[in-house]
C-alpha cells in the first residue's frame, strides 16, 4: 500500500505529516491510519504546500508545469506538501475505539490511507464526529462534508447510512437546523 506520508509533528490530538510525492497526498476529509502501536486513526483536515528554504519565496514564472519541470527542476525539490489530521480514535485488540489514544504517534511513523473496508468498520460508530466538530477552526463543517461523502461512497450510497449519520449530526448540532440542512444538502449533491 502506498504511504500517504510520514509524521513530523505529533500530539494526542492531531498529527502533521509530510507527503513523499504528489500522488500520495491524501484528500481532505479522508481517513488515514498511522502505523504505530496501537494503530491510530485520523481524519485529514488541512493539506498545504510550503518551501523548505526559509529565505526563498516561490515566484511566478509564467510556464506550464511540464515546462517548469524541464527548465527549473530544482524548485520541485524545494517545495513540499504536508497535511494535518485530527486524531479520531485507535484500533486495539480488534476493536475501533473512538476517543484519543493514550500516547501520541511516534515521529517518523508512516501514514497510510484507510481501505474502504476499514472506513466502513470504523464508521459503524459515530462518536468520532464530535472530535471533528471540536476542531473549532471554522472548517469542521467542510471536513464533515468531505468525510461523510467518502464514507457514503464506501457504503455504495446507502440511504440508511446517510440517515444514521444525519441523525447523529442533528444531535450534535442541537438547535442549529440551518447548519444541519446546509451540510446534508452539500453531502447529497
Amino acid at each position: 500500500m502506498n504511504k500517504s506520508g510520514e509524521v513530523l509533528e505529533s500530539s494526542t490530538r492531531e498529527v502533521m505529516a509530510e507527503c513523499r510525492d504528489k500522488d500520495s497526498i491524501p484528500p481532505l476529509g479522508s481517513l488515514v491510519k498511522i502505523e504505530t502501536t496501537p494503530v491510530i486513526l485520523a481524519v485529514v483536515y488541512n493539506v498545504f504546500t510550503y518551501c523548505i528554504e526559509p529565505n526563498r519565496r516561490p515566484t511566478a514564472y509564467g510556464l506550464s508545469i511540464e515546462e517548469l519541470e524541464e527548465e527549473q527542476p530544482q524548485i520541485f525539490e524545494l517545495l513540499k506538501t504536508a497535511f494535518q489530521a485530527v486524531i479520531v480514535g485507535f484500533y486495539q485488540d480488534g476493536v475501533y475505539h473512538q476517543f484519543s489514544p493514550p500516547l501520541p504517534p511516534s515521529l517518523h511513523s508512516f501514514v497510510y490511507p484507510c481501505s474502504e473496508e476499514e472506513l466502513k468498520s470504523f464508521t459503524e460508530g459515530k462518536d468520532f464526529l464530535r472530535m471533528i466538530m471540536n476542531l473549532n477552526r471554522g472548517q469542521s463543517d467542510e471536513i464533515i462534508i468531505s468525510f461523510v461523502r467518502q464514507a457514503w461512497t464506501a457504503y455504495k450510497r446507502d440511504k440508511l447510512f446517510l440517515i444514521d449519520m444525519g441523525k447523529e449530526l442533528s444531535i450534535l448540532f442541537k438547535d442549529d437546523y440551518d447548519r444541519l440542512r446546509s451540510i446534508m444538502r452539500r453531502i447529497m449533491k
Binding site: K159, G166, K167, L169, S170, I171, L180, R181, M184, M188
Partner: peptide, 19 residues
C-alpha cells in the same frame, strides 16, 4: 418554519425521532 422539501425524503427521515 422551513420544513424539508417534499422530495427530500432523507432529510425528513433524519429529523424524524431526533428533532
Amino acid at each position: 418554519l422551513n420544513p424539508p422539501d417534499e422530495e427530500n425524503g432523507i432529510m425528513r427521515e433524519i429529523l424524524s425521532g431526533t428533532n
